[in-house]
């Protein structure tokens, strides 16, 4: 079976700085994939290139064979890559449900005219969206918070809502940027379970950046380690844990 995501020779320059260089990543269908590396290694920059926030200076990114280079972030989202952010970016003054409705916008097509004049098509689609939003919120038991403003959610729940919102675009590949940041061990454990559940339920691949090694080693089937924007190692958790290069990068000489 062919890969969902194929990244070849990815590189980007910021001014004179080579932030990422010659990176290859292959994510298989339904794979849980970890991208790790020390702070400033360029992990989030990779995410930003995958989602079109930055345009790569070289290399190619393909999703199910389709080239993503030069596409706008919203186009990439609609093609099937969805993400969360390192510093939570929710629509803070909107309700939990509305946060999800906004990404579900990708699933409906009623036009401006229909929307303003409230034609039956808009009603039908809005109703379907509403139902799906509540359905998606159930994944993290957030349905009870549907009408709460996003900014009033507890921190952990905000992280979860961001994942639910990302699911709203019906992604094939979900990018999670430090999903466990700021969580306690119990919450992290719950998150690990949830990520595995999501993969089964929605048949998606997950690429995640994480500093919590327990989480990464615990659920990822394949891991890429980068340092200074270049590949350091790639393999199964077992291989990575025993890789002298990786140990050196993390622990020093």
């Amino acid at each position: 079976m062919s890969n969902v995501l194929e990244v070849r020779d990815l590189g980007i320059n910021f001014g004179g700085l080579r932030a990422v260089d010659g990176l290859n990543i292959d994510v298989a269908p339904r794979q849980l994939y970890g991208l790790i590396g020390p702070n400033g290694a360029g992990k989030t920059t990779v995410f930003n290139m995958l989602t079109g926030v930055y345009e790569p200076s070289d290399g190619t990114i393909r999703l199910n064979g389709e080239l993503l280079n030069g596409k706008k972030p919203h186009e990439i989202a609609r093609m099937g890559i969805s993400r969360t952010f390192q510093n939570i970016r929710l629509f803070r003054n909107l309700s939990v449900k509305e946060n999800v409705l906004i990404s579900l916008d990708t699933q409906v097509d009623y036009g401006l005219f229909s929307g303003i004049f409230k034609l039956p098509k808009s009603f039908k689609q809005e109703k379907a969206m509403e139902e799906e939003a509540l359905e998606l919120l159930k994944v993290f038991e957030l349905d009870g918070y549907a009408d709460t403003l996003a900014c009033n959610l507890p921190y952990g729940k905000q992280r979860e809502l961001e994942i639910v919102r990302a699911l709203g675009t019906h992604p094939k590949l979900l990018l999670l940027d430090e999903p466990a940041a700021g969580m306690n061990p119990q919450e992290t454990q719950n998150l690990m379970d949830a990520i595995q559940r999501l993969r089964e339920k929605f048949a998606i691949s997950v690429l995640l950046i994480e500093h919590d090694m327990k989480l990464v080693m615990g659920i990822c089937e394949k891991i890429t380690v980068i340092n200074y924007g270049t590949l350091l190692a790639c393999g199964t958790p077992q291989e990575i844990q025993n890789d002298p290069q990786v140990i050196k990068a993390y622990l020093g000489e």
Partner: peptide, 11 residues
Amino acid sequence: EDEIAAEASGI
């Protein structure tokens, strides 16, 4: 609310 998040949500 958040332009970058909106783009990432397909808007």
